[in-house]
Amino acid sequence: MTDPSTSSPSGTSEPVELDEGATLMLAWQAGDEAAFERLVETHMGRVHGLLVRFLGPRAPLDDLVQEVFLRVVRARDRYEPRARFTTWLFRIVYNLSVNQTQRRRPTPQSLSAPDPDGSDLDVEDVAALGPSEDLERSDLVDAVQAAIAELPERQRMALVLAKFENQPYADIGEVLGLKEQAVKSLIHRARENLRTRLAPLLAEDLV
């Protein structure tokens, strides 16, 4: 894994104001074990949430959260507070999620596979549904989630970080290893893809 703490797309290493996460990380580097426990406690929820948004609720979330913090442990000595702590942490989550996606690819639990409980809607099925189908609100949510899951990885992570984690474009660029302009373009393309895939449902929902 590329060490997220040692690479920056902008190549800058300007000192940043220490946020709570960075402060805890530095305290832990200096030998304060309680700081690590606090770090896990305060950031576990966001890591878990980001994994759910990016990989879906069926991913082995607890294992992945554990793996994220194991990678934090392994990066302990190399950590430098060059960006917001969450940016550094989200980059670990992203790298791990991409690995996970690639591992799952040969035997995918595909979104298009028939789902016994019927909770998943395939994107193609969603697009085929006409306005007259009068979908319930929960179906729309499922359809949107399915459409997000079908986005390419970088588009998906950029959209999730911007929309649900309220991360600024510059920080998303740090997570994905891209310039800010490229992030804008990614998000634009992600939205365009979603608009296209969900157009029948969105048109039904207009007013």
Partner: peptide, 28 residues
């Protein structure tokens, strides 16, 4: 606008189980 409204309807993910904190600390 409709897309934003649809995205806003996606509920926040359920929080991790309370046992996960201990599990992570033990595993690390």
């Amino acid at each position: 606008r409709a897309l934003d409204a649809a995205l806003d309807r996606i509920p926040a993910p359920a929080p991790p189980s309370p046992e996960l904190l201990q599990r992570v600390l033990e595993a690390t």
